[in-house]
Design a protein around this nucleic acid. Structure first.
Length: 488
RNA sequence: GUCCCUUUCGUCUAGUGGCUUAGGACACUGCCCUUUCACGGCAGAAACAGGGGUUCAAAUCCCCUAGGGGACACCA
């Protein structure tokens, strides 16, 4: 085994990148980077029937989105390519032949019908379900005849029943399987393609993979893989089987219960940092009480030893919180840049960068998603056309009409239109009229934003600007009866 | 059914025999701050699946039971 750590994420293009797959890729990546090793993407496209168009592109795109850099893989050639299994068929065939020659594999001509019946019988008789080795007993002549007759066949591996296969899982410790419980796995399908088990072992060997970090669903086939390594006389890599991501009901995470495809998250407004941070914590923790991490910090902290054994439920509430944490850590300018295209789409592209950044500054701590700046606080960009009915009822009382009118006049006269000066206008007016400032503040907020919640009013006024604020206040004054009547 | 894995607050988790009246975070509740909503601060409720051992001492080690999950394809 080479000194440099080499790990791989090896998805099958039978669907789009699963959020659990993204976590597996991330753990591999973190491990590689932590150890100064290589992260390889290998496409396991040996199932021609289930191939999904666009899946590979989706993997690449989402990995890139997540900030997971591929050192070797499709489109990024390395010394051990190609990185599509469908382009490595000869390799598998040669090695299968070798296994056959050495008696570690055998021809099987059983039809799927027969296999189905066999399994049904085994199930009924409460026997462990495995191939019954009918074809292992075929004479060389019978095999030759079948071959000559072009009867479809598969190659199965011959598992020694009298031994046990044991391995040390980096996460689970010692795991042991009795040879008698290991099935004579199909290695080469009747279409000539290898199964996962064969191809995966051969590729991991030739790609010099040092650590196989994959989902827990693979533990039970690991002994088969180890046997294959032994048959070929190869070193066995280290194994680490990750706990599964679970639905709320603790079943394996699947559709129906929330979004399982990674690509569903960016459009919802989840930040790369948040998703990466969140999934990194699903089964791993740094050992102290920090929870917010950048990719670089994760790379620094990550270790396989600190991976949990039990499956984790994907808890969207916590993701949301982590998203808010990362929003706050971003500069106003970063957020501005992320918002740019949405701004254009909404027709708000005329607003100066400085203005939008000020709005961002005021809203950053109040939003869960960046796009909420455009939805929940559209009043930064357009005059309100509706007024929160409950707010109107409670705050837009008759005296407000006069107050708004007067305040608008006073604001208009202000030379320095900033927080303190604005606040002064309100406080002074309140004192003069012997009323509480809140009797002014609430109607004003409603008048200029249409809603009852938002940033501190004086900051809001300062950012939105004199002209707009005064216009909106006067609009409400002139439509006061209409506005206060509507919500009846 | 067979094999394998797993089991600490609702959820993510800390805990590797004494430091633990089991810690943190999300969510939840209350209070404070406050012009609103958030933020923030403080407080609260909330867990070692059960039973046996081992030990002076167990959430931590062992065994059994139960629950959960995964695998059992010519899918990965």
């Amino acid at each position: 085994m080479s000194d440099t750590v080499r790990v791989r994420y090896a998805p099958s293009p039978t669907g789009f990148l699963h959020i659990g797959g993204l976590r597996t890729a991330l753990y591999n990546y973190l491990f590689a980077r932590h150890h100064g090793g290589k992260f390889i993407l290998r496409v396991e496209d040996t199932d021609r029937a289930r191939f999904v168009e666009g899946a590979v592109e989706d993997f690449m795109h989402m990995l890139n989105w997540a900030g997971i850099e591929i050192d070797e893989g499709p489109g990024r050639d390395g010394p051990y390519g190609p990185y599509y299994q469908s382009q490595r068929l000869d390799l598998y065939t040669n090695h299968a032949q070798k296994l056959l020659n050495e008696g570690h594999a055998y021809y099987c001509f059983c039809s799927s019908d027969r296999l189905d019946q066999m399994r049904k019988f085994q199930e009924k008789s409460k026997l462990p379900p495995k191939y019954d080795r009918t074809c292992l007993r075929l004479s060389p002549e019978a095999i030759k005849k079948n071959l000559d007759d072009h009867i479809p066949f598969v190659l199965r591996m011959k598992v020694p029943h009298d031994s046990t296969v044991q391995f040390t899982d980096l996460i689970r410790g010692e795991v042991e399987f009795a040879g008698s419980n290991i099935d004579d796995q199909v290695l080469v399908k009747s279409d000539g393609y290898p199964t996962y088990h064969l191809a995966n072992v051969i590729d991991d060997h030739y790609m010099k993979i040092t650590h196989v970090i994959r989902g827990e669903e693979w533990v039970s086939s690991t002994p088969k893989h180890i046997l294959l390594y032994r048959y070929f006389g190869w070193d066995v890599p280290q194994f680490a089987h990750l706990p599964l991501l679970l639905n709320a009901d603790r079943s394996k995470m699947s559709k129906r219960q929330g979004d399982v495809e990674a690509r569903a998250y960016p459009p919802k407004g989840y930040l790369t940092e948040a998703v990466v941070n969140f999934i990194s914590l699903l089964g791993w923790n740094p050992g102290d009480e920090r929870e917010i991490f950048t990719m670089d910090e994760l790379i620094k902290e990550f270790s396989i030893e600190r991976i949990h054994k039990a499956g984790a439920i994907f808890n969207i509430e916590k993701l949301n919180w982590i998203n808010t944490q990362h929003i706050r850590r971003k500069s106003d300018e970063e957020i501005y840049n992320m918002l740019k295209s949405d701004l254009e789409k909404s027709g708000y592209s005329d607003f100066p960068k400085q203005y939008v950044m000020s709005a961002i500054g005021l809203m950053k701590e109040r939003i869960n998603f960046i796009h909420e700046l455009l939805t929940f606080s559209s009043y930064f960009f357009r005059d309100p056309d509706t007024f929160d009915p409950d707010g109107v009822k409670k705050r837009m009382l008759p005296p407000a009409k006069k107050h708004l009118s007067e305040l608008a006049d006073r604001l208009e006269k202000l030379d320095v239109f900033q927080h303190n000066e604005i606040e002064n206008v309100f406080r002074t007016y309140a004192e003069e009229n012997k009323i509480k400032a809140s009797e002014l503040i609430h109607p004003t907020r409603l008048a200029i934003s249409g809603v009852t919640l938002g940033p501190g009013l004086f900051d809001l006024i300062a950012v939105i600007g004199k002209e707009t604020v005064v216009r909106r206040m006067r609009y409400v004054v002139s439509h006061f009866d209409q506005i206060t009547k509507l919500p009846a």
